[in-house]
Nucleic acid binder design. Structure first.
Lengths: 356, 356
DNA sequence: CCACCTGGTTGGAACGATCAAGAATGACGC
DNA sequence: GCGTCATTCTTGATCGTTCCAACCAGGTGG
């Protein structure tokens, strides 16, 4: 015992504080001394409790609770070469768009990473030079893994991260490489659009238009295919009922005017809430009442859709479930277990409000 | 030189890779060997370049660039007891509200913390037991400082963090303790409401109502005071023109109906965009055209305000500047320099759209 | 000639955890 | 009785960085 006491004296300088002094963070050695065991035993109590005898475990746990000890993350990281941090590139919602749907996603991500003992680290991802941001994080071993969003735009990050041997899970399918092996989670956009289209068809609409994105966005084309498929299934004509453009509000407005001039659709299915809000603006300008004269369905169930008057019907993405799926895959990666099902495709739901 | 080579051999095991092998992260020792100097000199080159002779500095910088070295953050943290991480408690936007205005704030925060060499770490703040979340972060020395948001609700965290001796900057004034000494940044809500009220008065409105929050939210009372002050200045009557309640959409809707029945205001100034959207809904239900029959101004300039039809005029908070102010104060705290002006009150602006 | 700077550099120790190996104990089989 | 083994706990080394005290050369002052 003398030796141990001596070690204590060395480790914890005469701070004048008693054992529970919160101003001096307790270390493994502090806890070990209090519990009358060695450092390693305390370490085992935390990381591998099954190794300890029941009685010892109890002693150690009591000491930990008494001192309010939690392991120093830096020291742990240094030794294990793992930071228990997940990197999340953070881009703000663009002004003038309906909503940052990332909000719900990020929150669930934070909550469920915490449950597996991880935290979420935000970092700015330069739009033009995304690699640099990732590279810095990797070089300084700042994070153990990444959550990659916005993978639809050709996703150069995915290719880079894979080449670099970094761990990551993508929110978004690898559109340009369907045989990719990395884990991903995504929402079935085609099913969402189909849901919206079928909903309008069920309400008796026969001339249902699609307001989509430009052709080079696979996610937009995917959603469009759901509209197209449903129209075909119902035997409805689709000629000159499909618009495409950038996803802005202004585009939605103009495209709606054009469609109304051309084919007088009674229902509009939109690739995003932003576009749908543009459509509502066009209807407003023409004195048409959404929901009564023309039905509109958006996509994303943004806050704007929820608070707009009239309330905008919209396809809701299960962002919470997506985050859970992402974290589940992350955990497997981080514990070096195989991810048996790398891809997970979730089904959206339809929220019906006043506009349909 | 023999000794140095020997050390190299020990430090970098026979990985088979050449010096630039990206699979083995270079360390200080690697760089030192390459530049022909000691570890400490490399460390100084990074942290205190002024100490080095110009020639030596050049050599070291070249070696760093060649090897693509960045310091291991865990090792640095362990030694310096600083993590270079800022903790940000993260709550999601509530469903059914106009918008998470945090989005813009967080992005600027991430960008400008990076510029001072810090990263932002999200953590889930339990609404009921906020202290626990902070305590965990502090105990494990996971972050160096916090950014505290939502300080309006009595702000128990602020009191706790101060007692605990933790570093933090608050987004939001210490309402209940005006003499508090901790650094904070906030927006002049009264000025914002005054701006909105004056704007309506300038357009000839004389019966301008206030749709606010419950009395126990000081931030709501602050904004209300701006309305009240401006009404008085203009010699306008305020009797039975002020509504208060929770900030929900439904409250905004009902309060608007009640006001219209009672006093027929021609202008509405709202404490938030959510409330304003509720007001718009009430107008919609009565067949009144916002902007023509009745003017409405919201608060926050949420995405919903931007995309709604008609576009909602709204008071815009300078969230980017707030984030900059927060980071500036953080930096002073972290470098142990005094914060000469702990409080910073910023002025909002008015974005005029269709509803006014 | 020695003490004392000053600018530049150096090796050893320390931060607090985990890893790898080893030691004490008792149980078991031959 | 002896070796083997499993269980349980301990000891020294180590991760990569920064702090500390000291060193070195060369100039200055006493």
């Amino acid at each position: 015992m003398e030796e141990r006491d001596a070690e204590m004296a060395r480790r914890v300088p005469a701070a004048g504080g008693h054992a529970g002094d919160p101003s001096v963070a307790p270390t493994l050695a502090t806890v070990a001394a209090r519990a009358g065991v060695s450092r390693q035993t305390v370490s085992n109590a935390i990381n591998n409790p099954a190794l300890l005898a029941e009685e010892t475990l109890g002693k150690v746990e009591r000491a930990i609770a008494d001192l309010g000890y939690s392991p120093n993350l830096a020291a742990r990281s240094l030794r294990t070469r793992a930071t228990r941090l997940i990197g999340l590139p953070f881009e703000p919602a663009q002004e003038g768009t309906a909503n940052a749907l990332m909000d719900r996603f990020v929150h669930t991500l934070v909550e469920s990473t915490r449950e597996i003992g991880y935290h979420v680290l935000l970092f700015a991802a330069d739009a033009e030079d995304a690699e640099q941001g990732y590279e810095r994080m990797l070089r300084s071993t700042a994070v153990d893994a990444f959550v990659v969003t916005e993978t639809y735009r050709g996703s150069p990050q995915v290719e880079y991260l894979q080449r670099r041997g970094a761990l990551f899970v993508a929110f978004g399918r690898p559109w340009d490489a369907p045989d990719a092996t990395h884990p991903w989670v995504d929402v079935d956009g085609a099913a969402g659009a189909a849901l919206a289209t079928a909903h309008l068809a069920d309400r008796g609409h026969e001339v249902i238009a699609w307001l989509g994105w430009t052709t080079d966005q696979p996610i937009g084309e995917d959603r469009r295919s759901g509209w197209m498929r449903t129209m075909r299934e119902r035997g409805l004509d689709t000629t000159r009922l499909s618009a495409r453009g950038d996803g802005t509000l202004e585009y939605g407005r103009r495209a709606t005017h054009a469609l109304l001039d051309a084919r007088k659709p009674t229902g509009l299915v939109c690739a995003s809430d932003t576009v749908a809000m543009g459509a509502l603006r066009a209807l407003h300008e023409r004195g048409l009442a959404p929901g009564r004269d023309i039905a509109v369905v958006g996509f994303d169930d943004s806050l704007a859709a929820q608070v707009a008057s009239p309330g905008l019907s919209s396809v809701r993405q299960p962002l919470e479930d997506i985050a859970l799926g992402v974290v589940e895959r992350l955990e497997r990666l981080l514990t070096h277990r195989p991810v048996d099902e790398p891809g997970l495709l979730l089904q959206p739901t339809l929220v019906v409000r006043d506009t349909s």
